[in-house]
Design a protein around this nucleic acid. Structure first.
Length: 602
DNA sequence: ACGCTCGCATCAGGTGGGAAACGG
DNA sequence: CCGTTTCCCACCTGATGCGAGCGT
């Protein structure tokens, strides 16, 4: 995939562009000036985000799949002294001087009030149904001033954590988020340049404490926090085509409690333990040099996904969260206690974690991880494409209908936030994401949920990696091949050229891409399944059993009903009989067919 | 001889657990 | 004293380097 000649040429040009970009203060994380643009400067940390209250279903909600019933309304809790808009964003000259009032300054703030429905076949009642595939979604024609739509790619996984109140470890040296933020963006101008970054703001004005098995408020939050609150995506600035081409992952974003950290500030966001935070995605239109384009009507758009709220901790408090982390985070595989049981399927059916397994399988769904890891690793519930993690947080161009998981049945769960003005805030201060819509289906069909998620990730997730399984499967999973194909380590700012599409000139391919994603099938799929079944080595399994002895039990004994993590592979298999694909005897050759069955058989 | 593929060893970095240290 | 933070540990994965084997 990356080996193409055309590709290399595009890469070189991209590299040059990257070099140019590095000069841009806006993107060079190492440049203080650049940093200052987006880092918190005097803008108090005292900005709070109050989750949107449950809203009445919007008209769109009529079509559960099309848009989530959740409300718009994410509001930003603004202490008297705080500015209304993301304070941490000190954009200086780049941003309109007068406040960041969405309407006034051309900055829009969106919450996940709208989520792109997945499409028919969605297993979650609230979402399923007539959800239109992406193609049917009203996506404004790309162009300057257009409002973007953002999908939280791994929303299902986030929801799993959210149900237990997500916790994120913060350490002095910085700890990556898990789940991490991963988005798909649509509606940007193909040729315009944008900076994409995440800001983490206080979600509420309280200090939290884990007591009696649950989180309770304990005094007021310390608003004196200081330090960087923004993480600029390494590939910023880049064209809209580039951002829309594949998922945008923030897997390398690190959280720290070390205010004095002087290194890697561009990769670290400073938080305070026991405080609740709300990540927000910002998309700022800039000039090619990374300077905000003052001629643009819509300069900045912000998106908030309530389910990504989390409480920063230095040590996990809720064992349910710990278990979820262990179950889904490949790097924590050593702590899994049920590793053996996970691989009860015939050797031939065991999908080896490696090379696709974990890291690539980051954020996998519990059940999925055991069986279709490689396939599902990504977004669905979770898994981000591998290269996003290790090569550059960014995906590979979605060439062959890999763009989106929302294929066919549109099962792909992309939660989409569209232009929703910041207004309409609910007075509710509840920090809980309103899961009403989900709870029903979520708890009731949790299993399916995960499964579906898994299936979804496939195409998309894989697309992230230059050495995506899809790209290499045809020739086998040789780890070697995968490695060799990995994107050459490039400068952080290097725009990642799309192997198949030149950058950014090929932006016109984005559209077709979307269409592909909607139609979603790729010949690659079959080959993928055929080659992605490397068996888990017994040796590995054995070594793992040792680790399993260290098993840790949840003090609260998460009930099976509400602890997704407890769902075992076998459970999934049985529970998803409909989705025959999950059968232990599922030959890898059935792969894709089975794979899709997940979607088609809610 | 040269280039390529493959396997292995090594290293870096990520993970949660647990004990020790810290601080109110 | 108790809650929180820090540090170290074992484990895991991916990346990288090296040498062996093979074909041209």
């Amino acid at each position: 995939m990356l080996g193409g000649e055309g590709e290399s040429s595009s890469f070189s040009s991209a590299k040059e562009a990257a070099d140019e970009r590095r000069k841009s203060p806006a993107v060079d994380g190492g440049d203080p000036a650049a940093q200052s643009r987006y880092t918190e400067h005097g803008m108090g940390p005292d900005r709070y985000y109050i989750p949107p209250a449950v809203s009445k279903q919007s008209p769109e909600s009529a079509n559960p799949c099309a848009f989530l019933p959740y409300t718009p309304g994410g509001t930003v809790y603004t202490p008297p002294s705080a500015g209304r808009y993301p304070s941490s964003l000190h954009l200086g000259s780049v941003l309109p001087p007068a406040g960041f009032s969405p309407s006034a300054a051309g900055r829009s703030h969106f919450t996940s009030a709208y989520q792109l429905g997945q499409s028919p076949g969605c297993i979650y009642p609230p979402y399923t149904g007539s959800a239109p595939p992406l193609s049917n979604v009203t996506v404004p024609a790309a162009g300057p001033g257009m409002r973007a739509q953002v999908y939280l790619c791994n929303r299902p996984l986030w929801l799993k954590f959210h149900r237990h109140q997500t916790e994120m470890i913060i350490t002095k040296q910085g700890r990556r988020m898990f789940p991490f933020l991963s988005f798909n963006i649509a509606g940007l101008s193909l040729t315009a340049h944008y900076n994409v970054f995440v800001e983490v703001v206080l979600a509420d004005p309280n200090h939290w404490r884990f007591q009696g098995g649950k989180w309770v408020t304990c005094g007021k939050a310390d608003n004196s926090s200081q330090g960087n609150k923004v993480y600029i995506h390494p590939e910023s600035p880049n064209t809209g085509a580039h951002w829309m081409r594949q998922e945008i992952s923030f897997s390398k974003l690190k959280l720290t409690n070390n205010k004095g950290t002087s290194h890697n500030t561009s990769q670290m966001i400073v938080l305070q333990s026991l405080h609740k935070y709300q990540p927000r995605l910002h998309i700022v239109e800039v000039t090619e040099d990374g300077v905000e384009d003052i001629n643009s009507d819509v300069k900045t758009q912000s998106f908030t996904f309530p389910e990504t709220q989390f409480i920063a901790v230095t040590a996990y408090q809720n064992t349910d969260i710990t278990q979820l982390k262990i179950d889904h985070n490949p790097f924590a595989k050593g702590f899994r206690d049920n590793y053996d049981s996970m691989y009860t399927a015939p050797e031939s059916d065991r999908l080896t974690p490696s090379p696709t397994d974990s890291p690539r399988a980051h954020q996998i769904v519990p059940g999925a991880r055991y069986a279709m890891q490689p396939l599902f690793q990504d977004q669905f519930v979770n898994n981000p494409p591998q290269n996003r993690f290790y090569n550059s947080e960014r995906a590979v161009p979605q060439t062959t209908s890999l763009l989106s998981p929302q294929t066919e049945d549109g099962v792909s769960q992309r939660w989409f936030v569209t232009s929703m003005q910041q207004g309409g805030n609910s007075s509710s201060t509840s920090n809980k994401l309103d899961l009403t819509p989900y709870e029903g289906d979520y708890s009731g069909s949790l299993l399916p949920y995960g499964i579906k998620s898994l299936s979804m990730q496939t195409s998309h997730a894989l697309s992230y990696y230059p050495d995506s399984p899809f790209t290499t499967m045809s020739t086998g999973w040789g780890s070697r091949a995968a490695y060799q194909r990995k994107v050459t380590p490039s400068l952080p700012w290097s725009p990642r050229p799309s192997p198949t599409a030149g950058f950014p000139e090929d932006s016109d391919k984005v559209k077709p891409q979307i269409e592909e994603e909607v139609n979603g099938t790729g010949g690659l799929h079959s080959s993928w399944t055929e080659t992605q079944a490397p068996a888990l080595s017994l040796e590995k399994a054995n070594s793992y059993s040792t680790a399993c002895k260290r098993r840790r039990l949840s003090l609260h004994g998460p009930s099976a009903e509400d602890s997704p993590a407890d769902i075992k592979c076998e459970d999934l298999a049985s529970a998803t009989t409909n989705s025959s694909s999950y059968s232990k005897e599922t030959p890898s050759s059935k792969g894709m067919a089975a794979y899709y069955s997940f979607y088609t058989n809610p």
